[in-house]
Write a protein that binds this DNA or RNA. Structure first.
Length: 587
RNA sequence: GGCCCCGUAGCGCAGCUGGUUAGCGCGUCGCCCUGUCACGGCGAAGGUCGCGGGUUCGAGUCCCGUCGGGGUCGCCA
């Protein structure tokens, strides 16, 4: 090594020692006769004092090596803000290892820099303490998970990234196969099929920190390539997967957030989650639960409330918000596909106001506070219609109430499971025709097992059949999801049939998995953790872009490399991109 | 794909109902400075106002289109 110590590790105990340091000029304070340089390396910063002429030429982010002596700072000159603030290094020899051009943006922790600039020069951005810390937290996270899973006898196995389309239902990224012009690889949307094959292979306990690829439109917390901690286990029930997952969460949150989680996590059946929170990923850090008023308004004179479902959310103190803000809620609802939001304002005297109030009967008005739990000074928002439309709208309103009102305790970690999800979903509601052509499609994916209550009779009532599936939720984020898989060929055949896939079509799409399942597949199940989101939560950042080393910006563009980029005619020819298939491919 | 917001010096931003020379802070460059720590002082350079078209005597400002970024709904587990 060309250095003897790291800058951030020096303390008063080293006073008097000769040291050689190497790092970057984080800041310099040139007083003419004396020059102070904050020397930064991965461990931190230390102040270096120069009294020689050559230090005047130093500029920010020059990479330098310094030989000198550690000394105690003169009395009164200590900097208590710095771990190394009691000491300084007086330089005897300065070597400039490399110089730096003027920076495109300041690498200063108190300066806000636009994301576009940061990503274009991510290698500079990552020199800053915040982004550097995020990378290190993610590394620790990986390390903890690997150790934990190895302790529990898991086998880390890499699965192919050049493969065949997997049945997740998103759009595939495709890679031309040079040796078979006209044929294409797909990048995996997840290692789903491979991990099940590994169970057939008798590996029993598999995990992988797996890169996954989905060619879908962008969202704040989405990247076209992202990472899952992928886990699959043989001979387990839902409880086993949940126990393992909770133990992992407990370990990770203890080590990285200093937080002791309370186990077991609450388990909320999917229907209850939709009824109380209007979402399948409830944020349990605050109340304001949805109130079902369908029964309350059965005989209402107000037409709008004579619906399959009427629900409400109470906004504490909402009665005093100005007209403009109330109009804003209407826009909020319309943006989410609602017609608007009915509301009632409860005056401080308990008197009901707002346009809806006069449409209600006297009895409805007098009992409304008791029915909704509202108090004087509150606002009550209503949505009426199909439960599948009205509840998510109220769920969104609930979240917004929490955010605007500062009702969410940001220091809290609220974990829960949402299970007992429906097995199927009507295709006419989702337009998802990726897997089959039937009226029903899998909510989770086609290999999710019906639970024990339904496994023999899901055909009788597909709408209400329940899956052996479970989602892990933290603070309103879905951070993991999994299921017990189907391991009996006959059950799989029946599930495919519900989705409109006959034996021949199933064979075409998933032939290799069905073939494998002919050879004594073990009962198995697993879970996939949204690893980028775990890292983002633990790092305390909003966007998963902050915990990806080189993230893509909107449109899948990489501002650093400029990818995707055009290819040359030669590459085009060689890759076989333009090869014409001989006939229409099957499926 | 729909809707909303943004694009002005290297970075972060201001620029009113259109008005003649487009500002501020940081950074950069030069000179000065022996105890600073987001050091300080004096001075200087730096702009196709994203791009194209239109309205107007006159456009950073208004209109249309387009590109890029962010958010959101659709999509996506």
């Amino acid at each position: 090594m060309i250095r003897t110590h790291t800058a951030g590790s020096l303390r008063a105990e080293q006073v008097g020692e000769q040291v050689t340091l190497a790092g970057w000029v984080a800041r310099r304070r040139d007083h003419g006769g004396v020059v102070f340089v904050d020397l930064r390396d991965a461990s931190g910063v230390v102040q270096v004092v120069f009294r020689e002429e050559d230090a005047h030429d130093l500029r920010v982010e020059y990479c330098i090596a310094v030989e000198g002596a550690v000394g105690k700072r003169p009395a009164g000159n200590e900097n208590p803000a710095l771990p190394t603030g009691e000491i300084e290094v007086t330089a005897a020899v300065l070597r400039i290892l490399s110089t730096s051009a003027p920076l495109p943006f300041p690498l200063d922790d108190h300066v806000e820099v636009g994301e576009e600039a940061r990503l274009r020069y991510r290698y500079l951005d990552l020199r800053r303490t915040g982004p550097a810390r995020a990378m290190r937290i993610r590394s620790e996270l990986n390390h903890l998970a690997r150790n934990f899973l190895h302790e529990r006898d898991f086998v880390e196995i890499e699965t192919p990234t050049l493969t065949r389309s997997t049945p997740e239902g998103a759009r595939d990224f495709l890679v031309p196969a040079r040796l078979r012009p006209g044929s294409w690889y797909a990048l995996p949307q997840s290692p789903q099929i491979f991990k099940q094959l590994l169970m057939v292979a008798g590996m029993e306990r598999y995990f992988q920190i797996a890169r996954c690829y989905r060619d879908e439109d962008f969202r704040a917390d989405r990247q076209p390539e992202f990472t899952q901690l992928d886990i699959e286990m043989s001979f387990v029930t839902e409880d086993d997967v949940i126990e393992l997952s909770e133990a992992l969460v407990a370990r990770v949150w203890m080590e990285l957030a200093g937080h002791q989680v309370t186990r077991p996590f609450r388990r909320i059946p999917y229907p209850e989650s939709m009824a109380r929170y209007g979402t399948d990923k409830p944020d349990l850090r605050f109340g304001c639960e949805l109130v079902d008023l369908t029964g309350y308004f059965t005989d209402t004179p107000f037409r709008v409330f004579r619906a399959a479902y009427v629900g409400a959310v109470v906004q504490p103190g909402g009665a005093s918000q100005p007209r403009r803000t109330l109009d804003g809620w209407q826009d909020f609802a319309r943006q989410r596909g609602g017609k608007g939001l009915a509301f009632v304002l409860v005056g401080d005297d308990g008197e009901l106001g707002g346009p809806v109030a006069k449409n209600l009967s006297d009895a409805e008005r007098s009992g409304l506070l008791a029915a909704t739990g509202a108090e004087p000074g509150d606002a009550i928002f209503f949505a009426a219609g199909e439960p599948a439309d009205a509840r998510p709208l109220l769920g969104a309103v609930r979240l917004e109430i929490g955010r605007r009102g500062g009702l969410i305790d940001e220091s809290q970690w609220a974990f829960c499971w949402v299970n007992d999800a429906p097995l199927f979903e009507r295709t006419d509601r989702t337009d998802d025709v990726a897997v089959g052509s039937g009226r029903w499609t899998a909510v989770h994916h086609a290999f999710t097992s019906p639970n024990s209550d339904w496994i023999d009779r899901f055909e009788d009532d597909p709408e209400h059949a329940l899956a052996d599936a479970y989602d892990l939720v933290c603070n309103g984020n879905e951070i993991g999801g999994g299921s017990i898989r189907i391991h009996q060929a006959e059950v799989q055949r029946r599930v495919f049939a519900m989705m409109g896939l006959d034996a021949e079509q199933a064979q075409q799409k998933f032939g290799f998995l069905i073939d494998a399942f002919a050879y004594g597949p073990p009962p198995h199940g697993g879970i996939a953790m949204g690893w980028d989101r775990w890292a983002a939560l633990l790092a305390g950042v909003e966007s998963i872009r902050e915990v990806v080393a080189f993230p893509k910006s909107g449109g899948g563009f990489d501002p650093l490399t400029g990818a995707p980029a055009p290819i040359t005619p030669e590459q085009r020819k060689e890759a076989g991109v333009d090869a014409r298939p001989k006939a229409d491919p099957p499926g």
